[in-house]
């Protein structure tokens, strides 16, 4: 039975994919090898893992402003996450998602999204209404 999570209205198109989840933060500049498509920062909870075409589920944004360009640049090469779901986005992630036309949602009613969604869950995101559906919840 699918499980629906409500969140704030987000940005970008509808998206569906497999979740990659960690209770850690996100910056395209600080954390990623954007050529290889993997988390490269050794201290990151997802170090070494590929983010390509995944629905990334993380806590919040960190660091600087570069991510606003980088999401667009990553998407133009097809080496990008499919969507970003966060407890709290910052302005830069919103601006980057808007430019890249990448799916982004945050502020989930039911609490910590990094606990609500598990790695490997199949997830459908409808940012225009603020709704995320876990299609095969391991913990229904």
């Amino acid at each position: 039975m699918a499980k629906v999570l409500n969140c704030h209205v987000g940005i970008g198109p509808r998206a569906e994919g497999e979740a990659l989840v960690a209770n850690d933060n996100f910056s395209a500049r600080y954390d990623l090898d954007r050529i290889g498509g993997v988390f490269s920062r050794p201290e990151h909870a997802l170090a070494g893992q590929s983010y390509v075409d995944r629905i990334l589920v993380l806590n919040t944004a960190k660091g600087g402003v570069a991510t606003a360009w980088m999401l667009y640049e990553m998407k133009s090469r097809g080496i990008a996450p499919k969507a970003l779901l966060l407890n709290s986005a910052n302005t830069i992630l919103a601006q980057g998602a808007a430019l890249a036309d990448m799916t982004l949602c945050d502020r989930f009613d039911a609490g910590d999204v990094t606990q609500l969604i598990k790695t490997g869950d199949r997830v459908k995101v409808a940012p225009e209404v603020g709704e995320v559906t876990i299609l095969n919840p391991s913990d229904p």
Binding site: A68, W69, M70, Y72, E73, S76
Partner: peptide
């Protein structure tokens, strides 16, 4: 802020 590493070709 717009260094070429961030903007890329796109």
């Amino acid at each position: 802020m717009a260094d070429p590493e961030s903007t890329g070709e796109a």
